[in-house]
Design a protein around this nucleic acid. Structure first.
Length: 429
DNA sequence: TCTGGGGTCCTAGGACCC
DNA sequence: TCTGGGGTCCTAGGACCC
């Protein structure tokens, strides 16, 4: 199969070791040291500095299994500080937006930029410019991969990061270069192919990505679905995944957490669910959406084999759809009542809001004022604005409880340096 | 003692309709 | 004797992403 020429060109900008790099920006003592960042509840490793990767610390390893190793190699450990990472991410994305009119913010640490119409010779320079500007303005190192499809831009980015001589920028536009890298790329590193599909391909005598691009379409579609077929076309240089500059409105908004300690009491579970619902409702209103369906789930610890495992989910329609926290909490707690079993030790709980629709398309109701024009909406607005302005969460619902004894562990948090005055970095001279 | 959270999309299979 | 088939909707489960 040949590589088709295309008039499309994408740059993928990816922050290196993003969370670890964020911690480093405000703490120069972390430079050249192994740093790891933990998941919520201080569970497992979700980000590692290059030094930590070089020591062999694997992604998703439970941290309780590595404390000896951490001491031995003087690894610095942090709880995740999403307030800080989110704010730095916004700064990076806003810098990128100033460098191009066409950008898709793909995740907290990645963005695709359109480079359509740029001269082939200018692409690598453009990549280096991006890199320098982000580094100077935010302190975050980024890698840039440039190619004719998003999937190939991901490939380019992978090698920009992993080959030291590339200096963090790689432009993959020539057929020979693409083939050179595709046969050196492990299958599971392709965007859209993970362990399962890679193993399936290997069992079927497809050992590298170049071989995959040469497999027959019909076979790929039959055994690996149309999604993988699209990926393969992209690897062949045919752009099938467009730049999505405006993100489509979400299909679901959820909040779930593992508890910081065992929870058995009905009342504590109720408080946790009320708090998660309130959080999800804030996210819902921030996007000017209404929820038409709410779902609650609870579960005991899946890792405790000696205890009985129980998990259950329950949902109901919200008619008319709503973004009123009080109403959502009431529904959530009613659902919870139906699935709670006494005598169990719970570990996780969560809520999902689904069947979302824009507030401004709200259907009228014959007998009630619709949410959009109600006093309830004004109340929600006041709460959201106050909490956002004071950055405090001081206004909350009584149902959330006061002590939050079930809240997650976060024992190694750094400061919210960029969003809280009282946590501003202090420098002694 | 200690194992994340928030999403997306596709497929298969059942129920139901005409 | 002869016993359909196409379409839609829903749900659960799997695989993947960061």
């Amino acid at each position: 199969m040949s590589f088709m020429p295309s008039d499309k060109m994408f740059a993928l900008v990816d922050c290196n070791n993003f969370y670890a790099s964020c911690e480093r920006v405000f703490n120069p003592a972390l430079k050249n040291r192994p740093v790891v960042v933990l998941s919520n509840n201080d569970g497992c490793i979700v980000a590692r500095s290059q030094e930590a990767k070089d020591l062999g610390m694997a992604m998703a390893t439970p941290i309780f299994k590595c404390w000896d190793f951490v001491k031995q190699h003087d690894v610095r450990v942090f709880s995740s500080n999403y307030v800080l990472y989110g704010d730095i991410s916004n700064r990076v994305m806003s810098l990128l937006s100033r460098m191009t009119p066409h950008i898709e913010v793909y995740s907290i640490d990645e963005a695709f930029l359109s480079c359509d119409g740029m001269a082939a010779g200018a692409l690598a320079d453009y990549g280096r410019q991006i890199q320098q500007r982000i580094k100077r303005a935010t302190g975050i190192p980024v890698s840039v991969g440039i190619a004719a499809t998003k999937t190939l831009a991901k490939v380019a980015n992978y090698f920009a990061k992993h080959q030291k001589d590339k200096g963090g920028v790689l432009c993959l536009t020539r057929k020979e270069d693409i083939e050179h890298y595709l046969c050196r790329l492990p299958l599971e590193k392709v965007w859209g192919i993970a362990r399962r599909k890679a193993a399936f391909l290997q069992r079927n005598n497809i050992q590298d990505v170049l071989q995959l691009t040469r497999a027959p379409d019909r076979w790929i579609k039959k055994y690996l679905t149309v999604m993988t077929l699209r990926t393969v076309w992209e690897l062949r240089g045919i752009s099938c995944i467009p730049l999505e500059e405006v993100s489509a409105h979400k299909k679901g908004i959820g909040t779930s957490r593992s508890f910081g300690r065992d929870v058995t009491k009905f009342s504590e579970m109720q408080e946790a669910l009320a708090a998660y619902t309130a959080r999800a409702a804030v996210k819902l209103r921030a996007q000017a959406l209404l929820a038409g369906y709410i779902q609650v789930f609870i579960a005991t610890d899946v890792f405790k084999e000696e205890r009985p495992y129980y998990q259950n989910t329950s949902g109901m329609c919200l008619d008319p759809p709503s973004a009123d926290t009080a109403r959502l909490i009431k529904s959530a707690l009613c659902l919870f009542q139906g699935i709670f079993r006494r005598g169990l030790i719970y570990k996780r709980a969560g809520i999902m809001l689904m069947d979302l629709s824009p507030q401004d398309c709200e259907q009228g109701d014959l007998f009630e004022r619709i949410y959009q024009h109600s006093a309830r909406r004004r109340l929600m607005d006041v709460m959201d604005r106050y909490n956002a302005r004071t950055n405090s969460g001081k206004l909350f619902w009584a149902a959330e409880g006061l002590g939050k004894p079930w809240s997650m562990r976060q024992a190694y948090t750094s400061g919210r340096y960029t969003t809280r005055w009282e946590e501003l970095l202090k420098i002694k001279i």
